[in-house]
């Protein structure tokens, strides 16, 4: 029954997404209905096909596309604490918003001239991303919510993996505009192939930094060690390793974010 709901929502979301495709607005959110999926890191003894090993995700709203430069600039102009000249060292490293031309406009706003306004905002730390979402009365998505949306109910899994690995294989280039590729089955754009994205709990994964002994317990108190559910999913390994290497104050040339919101 939830799959029918899903189809309905996809049917509605897709054309809506296509219609609004031109007007690039991350304000537009898509409702992801509740569901479950096999997370990449599982309890060591569970079998990945086992229903009990699936993670339940409650319904939530997620931005259809990553937050872009134009939207972030609007936020910065109303929240001087997050302006590159004012930002605190504890909240971001020295490369905050490096890709915006100058940090000082006439009225203290940052100048967007050399950055594509429709491209996803990058060079933002977790704190900046969280602050932006809070200002919209939203929040960052959890890692489970984000992965669940990417997973797209296993639709076209092989091609998705290939697309992701191809993106990893290409050296860094400035990100293109959002919504350049078709949306997925949920009606969400750019979960793969554009940028890395922050999640609310990026710092929760148990894979030790030397991920070869993912079976070992390096964290404490929980219900046991975790291991990967699918050793062939190189794309997922890379996403989790990437999150593992981050600290909240880090920025990255191709690291951005989108927001989420609880469903009422």
């Amino acid at each position: 029954m939830s799959s029918n709901k899903l189809k309905l929502i996809s049917l509605l979301a897709l054309p809506a997404a296509l219609i609004y495709g031109a007007a690039v607005s991350a304000e537009e959110m898509v409702m992801i209905p509740q569901g479950s999926f096999t997370p990449f890191f599982l309890k060591k003894d569970s079998v990945s096909s086992n229903a009990a090993s699936k993670v339940k995700v409650a319904a939530f709203w997620i931005d259809a596309a990553p937050v872009n430069n134009r939207e972030f600039q609007a936020f910065v102009s109303h929240h001087p604490d997050w302006h590159p000249t004012n930002i605190k060292k504890i909240f971001s490293d020295a490369h905050y918003l490096d890709h915006w031309k100058s940090a000082q406009g006439a009225d203290g706003t940052a100048d967007l001239d050399t950055a594509n306004p429709d491209a996803p905002v990058v060079n933002v730390s977790w704190f900046a991303a969280a602050a932006y979402c809070e200002a919209q009365d939203k929040r960052l998505p959890s890692t489970d919510e984000w992965e669940y949306t990417l997973n797209d109910n296993d639709r076209d899994k092989e091609n998705l993996q290939k697309q992701i690995i191809r993106w990893y294989s290409v050296p860094n280039r400035a990100p293109l505009s959002v919504k350049g590729q078709p949306a997925n089955g949920f009606g969400v754009f750019d979960l793969a192939g554009l940028i890395w994205e922050w999640t609310a709990d990026f710092n929760s994964y148990m894979a030790p930094p030397d991920s070869r002994n993912s079976g070992d317990k390096t964290q404490f108190c929980g219900s046991g060690s975790l291991s990967a559910s699918n050793l062939d999913d190189y794309a997922a390994f890379m996403r989790y390793s990437y999150r593992e290497s981050l600290k909240g104050s880090f920025t990255g040339k191709n690291l951005g974010f989108r927001c989420a919101k609880d469903a009422k």
Binding site: D201, S204, Q219, C221, G222, S223, G248
Partner: peptide
């Protein structure tokens, strides 16, 4: 929960709530 996450991220503490209601975390 939000404040806790923010403090943990600031200090660099990794943690995750697991099914049983317990937490896996750094020490």
């Amino acid at each position: 929960a939000g404040s806790i996450r923010k403090l943990a991220v600031t200090l660099g503490v990794k943690y995750k709530k697991v099914d049983s209601g317990d937490y896996e975390h750094d020490a």
